[in-house]
Amino acid sequence: MPQRKSWVYYNDRLSRYLFISSAVLVSLIILCIIWFVGMQGLSTFREVSIIEFFTSSKWSPDSGKFGALTFIAGSIGTTLIAILLGGPLGLAGAVFLAEIAPPWVRAFMRPATDLFAGIPSVVYGYVGITVIVGLTGKLTNSPTGYGMLAAGIVLAIMILPTVISLSEDALRSLPRTYKEASLALGATRWQTIRRVLVPAASPGILTAIILAMARAIGETMAVQMVIGNSPRFPDSLGSPTSTLTSNIVMEMGNTPFGSTWNNGLFMMAFILLIIALIMIILVRTASRKGAAR
């Protein structure tokens, strides 16, 4: 009898340690990623000045020019276009789903938006090449249509599910009394949405927008397929350019590991990683503010 009891006891102890070590492992992994990618990336600056890397748009590694401004500008530009197009549309969808949609429409539309989220990013890129670049070519009067606008449109569609589901959750988690009080005061539904519900849910909506931006700036395949991949500063919406992610994909295969060129690509990945981490900290602050209210 005592033997059996101790066996049960040790089993309990053992499982507990296993669970803790898995949790610790998850933390170690993110630290490893920051360390490895960071070390590899930062070694760029042994041969390239930091100022040149961030402020010059001349990227020709063959002649020793390592200015990454083009790619940084391309990434920021496409992300902004995506948020400007996809943000309002997604928010409209969220308000619709939370406040207006009849149950049967919601029962159909919620799984439909989830399906959006499941479509692989290469498939978005494929649709971008087959349809969207033709469209943007006409819109911007450019011969090919590849460029920031095409990438922005593809990304706008890709971030829709993130914006919709997180904003809808934020709107739905509001106390019913907010809405009832506003309607009882004689406000119309739209006035209630605009003046009461959306402001009250703003921390959650902000979180949705930030996470959507994080997804857009880190998206690789879809962007690479429609951006045009020319290391040219993005001076117009319809001219081929590059982003941080697309340039990594284009050049990683042709550069020997450990060369300055290769390290420069790792530095771009490190910039993306830092941006992602900053976004997470922003999200945490936004949700803490929401909780404090």
Binding site: I30, A214, T220, T245, A269, L273, L277, I280
Partner: peptide
């Protein structure tokens, strides 16, 4: 700390995972 790590890991762009896997 663990929660922060999980959330950070979730936000890492997949290409960064790719490069990390390539190094390792």
């Amino acid at each position: 700390l663990i929660r922060l790590s999980t959330e950070s890991l979730a936000s890492v762009p997949s290409i960064v995972f790719g490069l990390f896997g390539m190094i390792v």
